[in-house]
């Protein structure tokens, strides 16, 4: 994952409405109309949020007649987690050093 696409992913995740949309999609496919129902905002506004999520690669949208059902793109979240895993490993390098110091009673 490049830094640029990661920026896009984090920016997409930064909005609470978009996170709520993702949470709803985690339970299954939904149309923009269905996604708009729980929110006090218009369907076009929800459409714009969905567009940001699609551009960030977090949501996939297909055409079915006049409907555009949305679903989660599992690969995107896996990539984000793989990225956070690099950070976990970087931190773990430090903490394993600390473990050794604490075990040797050097401190």
């Amino acid at each position: 994952m490049t830094v640029t696409s990661l920026d896009t992913t984090f920016a997409a995740l930064a909005d609470p409405t978009r996170r709520a949309i993702l949470a709803q999609l985690a339970t299954g496919e939904a149309t923009v109309g269905e996604l708009a129902k729980p929110f006090a905002i218009s369907q076009p506004a929800v459409s714009r949020h969905v567009r940001v999520l699609v551009d960030a690669g977090l949501v996939l949208q297909r055409v079915e007649g006049t409907k555009r059902p949305c679903r989660l793109a599992p690969a995107a979240l896996t990539e984000l987690d793989a990225y956070l895993d690099l950070l976990r490993r970087a931190l773990e390098t430090n903490y394993q050093r600390l473990d050794r110091l604490l075990a040797d009673d050097d401190c």
Binding site: D7, F10, L84, L86, L87, R89, A90
Partner: peptide, 13 residues
Amino acid sequence: RAAMLETGMEHGM
């Protein structure tokens, strides 16, 4: 936050 995570990752990488 995104920038901090990126810096941390570059260093760790």
